[in-house]
Design a protein around this nucleic acid. Structure first.
Length: 214
DNA sequence: TAGGCCATCTGGTCCT
DNA sequence: AGGACCAGATGGCCTA
C-alpha cells in the first residue's frame, strides 16, 4: 500500500476504538439485527457442492473424501457466515474509528476556537482544503515580496483553485460561516502570519485578503 | 417534528 | 480465502 499522506502510523487509535463495545457485545448487536440467510442459499449450497452430494452420494465416497472437503451442514455454514460477518463488522468498525481519529487529528490542527462547535466531517475536509490553499497563497505572496518588495500580486494571479470560480472555494471557512460559529476574521487572529483586509485589493504583499476567498 | 449528522451493519467488489 | 474499501440502509441523537 502506498504511504499515506496523513501518515497513518501517527494516527492514535484509542483503546476504546479497539474494543468499542464494552457494554453490548457484538453478539448482542448481531443478534438484534442479524437477518437469517436467504431461502435461495439452500439451492446455492447444493449447487456449490458436488452434484453427487445432492443426489445422495454413498457413504463410502464421502468418507474417502476426508474432512477438509466434506460439505458443511446448513448449521455449520450459517455459523461460519455469521462468524465471518461478525469479523468483517469488527474490522469495518475499527476502520471507521481510524478514519474518525484521523479526522479528529485534522480538526486539531485547524484554527478554530475551543468553544466553537465541533466541525462536522464534511466541514473539516472543506475547511482543511481551503486552509491549505490559503497558506499556499501566503507562501506565494511571501516569495513575491522576498524577491521584490515592491512587487504586488494581482488578484488574477492569486486565483482560487479550480479556475477561480467561487464554487468550491466559496466554502473557505464556510463550515463555520455557515454555522455562524467562526468568522474568517476571528479564526485568522490565530494566524500570526496572515493579515485580513476588508479591502478588495489583493495588492498587499504578505497580506492575503481572505475576503477575496469567500 | 423535520432535517442534519453520525455510528453501525451489510453486501458487493477488488486486491493480495 | 480473507482483508480493505465502498456505498446504501437503518436507527439514534440533537437542534432549530
Amino acid at each position: 500500500m502506498a504511504p499515506h499522506p496523513l501518515g497513518a502510523p501517527t494516527v492514535q487509535v484509542h483503546q476504546d476504538t479497539q474494543q468499542p463495545f464494552s457494554g453490548a457485545s457484538d453478539n448482542e448487536v448481531l443478534s438484534s439485527k442479524f437477518t437469517p440467510p436467504s431461502p435461495t442459499l439452500k439451492l446455492r449450497d447444493c449447487s456449490e457442492a458436488e452434484a453427487g452430494d445432492c443426489r445422495g452420494t454413498s457413504r463410502k465416497l464421502r468418507a474417502r473424501r476426508g474432512g477438509r472437503n466434506r460439505p458443511k451442514s446448513e448449521l455449520a455454514l450459517s455459523k461460519q457466515r455469521r462468524s465471518r460477518r461478525k469479523k468483517a463488522n469488527d474490522r469495518e468498525r475499527n476502520r471507521m474509528h481510524n478514519l474518525n481519529s484521523a479526522l479528529d487529528a485534522l480538526r486539531g490542527v485547524l484554527p478554530t476556537f475551543p468553544d466553537d462547535a465541533k466541525l462536522t466531517k464534511i466541514e473539516t475536509l472543506r475547511f482543511a482544503h481551503n486552509y491549505i490553499w490559503a497558506l499556499t497563497q501566503t507562501l506565494r505572496i511571501a516569495d513575491h515580496s522576498f524577491y521584490g518588495p515592491e512587487t504586488t500580486v494581482p488578484c488574477e494571479e492569486l486565483g482560487s483553485p479550480g479556475g477561480g470560480s467561487n464554487g468550491d472555494w466559496g466554502s473557505l471557512y464556510s463550515p463555520v460561516s455557515q454555522a455562524g460559529s467562526l468568522s474568517p476574521t476571528a479564526s485568522l487572529e490565530e494566524f500570526p502570519g496572515l493579515q485580513v483586509s476588508s479591502s478588495p485589493s489583493c495588492l498587499l504583499p504578505g497580506a492575503p485578503v481572505f475576503s477575496d476567498f469567500l
